[in-house]
Simulated scan of single mutants.
Amino acid sequence: MAEMFLEKFRSLVPLYLEDEWQVEDGLTESEIEDALSEVGSPIPLVLREFYMALGGCEDLMEAYHYFFDPDELEIEDGYLLFLEDEEEKYVWGIRVDQLEVPDPIVYRRQNARGIWKSEEGTFSEYVLDMFTWVFDELSPELNN
């Protein structure tokens, strides 16, 4: 299968961490498959390639929000959950009926209300925008 997103995700390591991407920054296909056997659900190509590129890179996997490890993925309310904020007020997911889409739309749930809302962007768009926000816009505020 052709890689669509892998290099773009790998490029985040030198961009934001000022270091070369290393094999240890990602997970192998077999590590992902082993972890997913516990989940019992397929994942979109973009999420698979995200884990292949960054699944072992804690500095990005836990940058402001926390990406679930592949074995922590779970399905709730008809969504595959993959990310939550530090205070557990919000969780992000992909609709289970869209898991076969290579780069599906991301939704956010406000946990207190249980209401899902579209982020109006695909996983790749959302993740790239989130890292830009965290490292380019939020980082100076965190350092003051």
Score class of each variant (00 low, 15 high):
2 A>I: 08
56 G>L: 02
102 P>A: 10
32 I>T: 05
36 L>M: 09
25 D>Y: 05
79 Y>V: 01
41 S>E: 14
126 Y>T: 12
26 G>A: 10
139 S>Y: 13
102 P>D: 09
80 L>S: 05
52 M>Q: 15
37 S>G: 12
19 D>P: 02
36 L>R: 04
88 E>S: 11
24 E>C: 08
76 E>M: 05
131 F>Q: 02
60 L>W: 00
64 Y>H: 15
131 F>N: 03
133 W>S: 11
86 E>C: 11
37 S>M: 14
85 D>P: 03
33 E>M: 09
35 A>I: 06
75 I>M: 04
52 M>L: 15
51 Y>C: 07
135 F>Y: 14
51 Y>H: 08
116 W>H: 02
69 D>I: 08
83 L>G: 05
53 A>T: 08
46 V>A: 13
53 A>P: 04
59 D>V: 08
115 I>V: 14
83 L>I: 06
118 S>C: 05
134 V>I: 11
60 L>G: 02
128 L>Q: 09
120 E>Q: 13
32 I>S: 01
42 P>M: 11
16 Y>S: 03
63 A>D: 04
22 Q>K: 11
113 R>T: 11
73 L>K: 01
96 V>W: 09
94 I>C: 05
15 L>Q: 13
66 Y>F: 14
130 M>R: 01
7 E>D: 10
109 R>G: 00
30 S>C: 09
67 F>W: 07
126 Y>M: 12
115 I>Q: 01
21 W>F: 05
22 Q>T: 04
69 D>E: 09
86 E>G: 12
49 E>C: 04
65 H>G: 07
29 E>F: 12
40 G>E: 04
103 D>C: 07
128 L>I: 10
1 M>E: 15
116 W>M: 02
108 R>D: 01
4 M>P: 03
88 E>P: 00
70 P>L: 09
110 Q>A: 11
27 L>T: 09
64 Y>L: 12
141 E>N: 11
83 L>S: 07
140 P>Q: 08
15 L>P: 03
72 E>F: 03
39 V>M: 00
32 I>Y: 03
72 E>I: 01
67 F>A: 01
45 L>R: 08
88 E>I: 08
91 V>F: 06
10 R>L: 04
134 V>N: 04
67 F>D: 03
103 D>Q: 08
43 I>F: 05
26 G>R: 06
42 P>Y: 09
2 A>K: 14
53 A>I: 06
101 V>N: 13
20 E>V: 09
55 G>V: 09
69 D>P: 02
6 L>C: 03
72 E>T: 00
135 F>W: 12
24 E>L: 04
67 F>P: 00
